[in-house]
Amino acid sequence: MVADSSAHGIGHPNQDGRCGVTIKYEFLSRVDGSARFGLDDVHVLASVSGPIEVRLAAENSTKATFEVSVRPLTSIPGTDAKALGATIKSLLTPSLLLTRHPRTLIQLVVQPLSPSLVGSPKAIPSFHPGIAAASINASSLALMNASVIMKGVVCAVAVARTSSGELILNPTTDQLASSTASGCFAFILAAAESSSDRLHVSEVWSNWQSSLGFDVTEMFEAREMAQQGARNVWGLMKESVGSVGVDRSGDGEVEVEVADRLAEGGGDEDKMEI
């Protein structure tokens, strides 16, 4: 994977925001929607079940209950996984029309497939902005795949400041480990009804931290940059919906999964009839 993204110019990820982005609808068989989002070396898988039956204790008479659980790559979910889950839940909630399915449950499971930051002295071990951003994007894709009614699509990107003070969009894990400040920004993007090419962008999460301290203007610069990045992610998501099942990780190689799946399904039906 790493070799593959370097071919796409890992050093200049912010030129068009599309180097090394992988969007894949996994079609996991026992859930209603699933998707994998990958950016360079970070991959996250998300699945959505719902609307399904809700536990009596969690039932809400006016809207659907929305649950998010994050499963870490290694060991059992700790407080950091819970914290990420709570963040994802509150930033996705404004985009969902939960009142359409009262007394039901919409369950989102997020499974990062890449390790968190390790062995970096200045970084916070539990928080990897790249994984957080990929988790949010994978969640949005899975919700779309499960046809949950939404007002807009939530797109997220990570930003980091290098030791030389330069801001970079979509940093790699190595760049994050040596960064002096980093953060994750998420936006709800929705096409305006009047003209189809204009986008409504509103911020739902901005997080910026540094153990060395930072300046307000720097954070606003990072946010500006992130907004542009989120637009690019939205564009890629839109393309992916148009070509469901097409893997865009390779260099232009198109792999149509839907057709295969449909063919398989048809085969099964035939067997059933026999």
Partner: peptide
């Protein structure tokens, strides 16, 4: 979150707000 001298260490804004006139973050800082 700031340190003792008021230097910024972390800002975290979660949730949607709809009026762009209100510059929440600078005011909070």
């Amino acid at each position: 979150i700031t340190d003792s001298k008021g230097r910024l260490l972390s800002t975290n804004q979660l949730g949607q707000y709809l009026s762009p006139q209100l510059d929440v973050l600078s005011k909070c800082i």
